[in-house]
Design a protein around this nucleic acid. Structure first.
Lengths: 198, 198
DNA sequence: CCTCCAATTGAGCAATTGCTCAAATTTTAC
DNA sequence: GTAAAATTTGAGCAATTGCTCAATTGGAGG
C-alpha cells in the first residue's frame, strides 16, 4: 500500500547509469545524481540505501541491457557467428546515442574500483563473467550448427572474444580509430573466428 | 645554488606511481601522496604544480619504465617474436612486486578520465600510442628477420597485439584466471602470431 | 660567524563530499 | 472526512577534498 506518486525506478536507473558510465563511480557525486534524477537525497537513500547501493543496481541494469542486446543481435541474424559479429559491430561501431562512453561499464568499474570496495568489485566481476558465459553458449551453438569445427574449444574461444571486445573498446577510446577497429573486427570473424580448435 | 637537502624526485615519482596505479587518479588524495612521500603540501606543489601535474609526470615515468622493460625483453631473447612473447608473459604472468594493479596505468587513466580533464587524457592517449608504435617497429623487425611473412600488415598486427595486451590485463583483473591467460598467450604466439597478412 | 634566499613547514581555508533527519506533504484505508 | 502511514523535502552536519601562504629552517657564499 501507499505506492503511488512514487518516482519511476527504471527512469532513475537509466539516468544514473548514464552518469556513472560517463564519469565513473568516484567522479559522480550524489549531487550530480540528485540533479539528474530530480530527486532529493532522502528519496534516493530510501530507495537505494547508499551511493554504492545505487551503483550496484546500475551495474545490474546495464548488464541486463547488454544481455538483451546480444540476444536481439542473435535473433536478427541468420547465423550464430553473424549474430556475434553484429553484436561487436553494434557496440564498437554503432552510434548508440545513449552510450556516453566507449568502454564497457563493467570493465570500467573493474578498472576503477579497488579491493576496498569489494562488494561492488565482485558484483561487476560476476556480471562480466555471466556475460562471458552467454558468449560460450553461443559459440557452442555455432559449433552444433556446423559454423565452427567440431573440435573447437568453445570455452577458450568465448574468452578470446571477450578479451577482444574489452581490448577493442579501450583501443577505440584511446585512438578514436574506427577504421582500425573495423579492420580488426573483420579479421576476427572473416577468415575463420581464429584458428581455435584446441 | 641552494639545492641540497632536497627530496629525491625519482623516489617521489616511484611512490606516487604506486599510489595512482593502485587507486586511480580521483581516489588518490593529496593527503595520501603527502603521507607516502613524506612531503608537506608546499613542497609537492612547488615541484609539480598540482595533483594533475604530478599525475602527468607519473604517467610519463610509468610509460618510460614500460618502454625500457620491452627493450630489455627484446635483448634478452634470441628472436624478436620471442621478445614480444616474453614481454607479454612478464607483464601478465610475472610476479612484479611493485605492480599494485593488473591493469596498464595508461589504460586505467584513459578509462577513468573524462573529457573535462583533457590534458591528462591526451597525455595518456599519446603515451599509449607511442608504446604501440614501438610494437610496430618490432613487428617490422620480425618481418625483416623472416620470422613473419613478408606480406604481413605490421601496423595491423601491432594494433592487434596492443588490443590483446589491454584485453588480457582487464580479463586477468576480472577473473584472476592465470591459466586461461597463459593459454591465450600461447594461442597468440604459438601457431603463428595470427594469420595476419593483409 | 653572518647574511641571504631557496626550500620546507604546517595550520588552515573554501569548496565539496556522502549522508541524516525532523518537518511538511501526499496517499491510503476506513 | 479523517487519521494513520508512507513519502518527499531541504537545511545542514561532519568529514574530506585540493590547495595557499606566512612563518621557519638550514645550507652556501663571503
Amino acid at each position: 500500500m501507499a505506492n503511488t506518486a512514487k518516482f519511476n525506478r527504471r527512469e532513475v536507473l537509466q539516468k544514473a547509469t548514464r552518469l556513472f558510465w560517463q564519469n565513473g563511480f568516484h567522479a559522480t557525486s550524489t549531487r550530480d545524481l540528485q540533479q539528474a534524477t530530480n530527486l532529493r537525497p532522502g528519496s534516493i537513500y530510501a530507495a537505494f540505501g547508499s551511493k554504492s547501493g545505487l551503483f550496484k543496481e546500475v551495474l545490474a541494469y546495464y548488464a541486463q541491457n547488454r544481455d538483451e542486446l546480444l540476444h536481439r543481435c542473435m535473433t536478427e541474424e541468420t547465423s550464430t557467428l553473424g549474430g556475434l559479429r553484429a553484436y561487436f559491430r553494434y557496440i564498437l561501431l554503432g552510434d548508440d546515442v545513449d552510450a556516453p562512453n566507449e568502454l564497457c561499464l563493467l570493465a570500467k568499474a573493474i578498472s576503477e574500483l579497488d579491493e576496498g570496495e569489494e562488494t561492488l568489485l565482485d558484483e561487476a566481476r560476476s556480471l562480466l563473467a555471466a556475460h562471458g558465459e552467454k558468449f560460450r553458449l553461443y559459440v557452442e551453438e555455432a559449433v552444433s550448427a556446423g559454423e565452427l569445427p567440431q573440435d573447437t574449444n568453445s570455452e577458450l574461444l568465448a574468452r578470446q572474444l571477450q578479451v577482444q571486445m574489452i581490448g577493442l573498446r579501450t583501443f577505440l577510446r584511446a585512438t578514436s580509430d574506427r577504421a582500425a577497429v573495423e579492420q580488426m573486427i573483420g579479421k576476427l570473424f572473416d577468415p575463420a573466428p581464429a584458428q581455435t580448435s584446441n
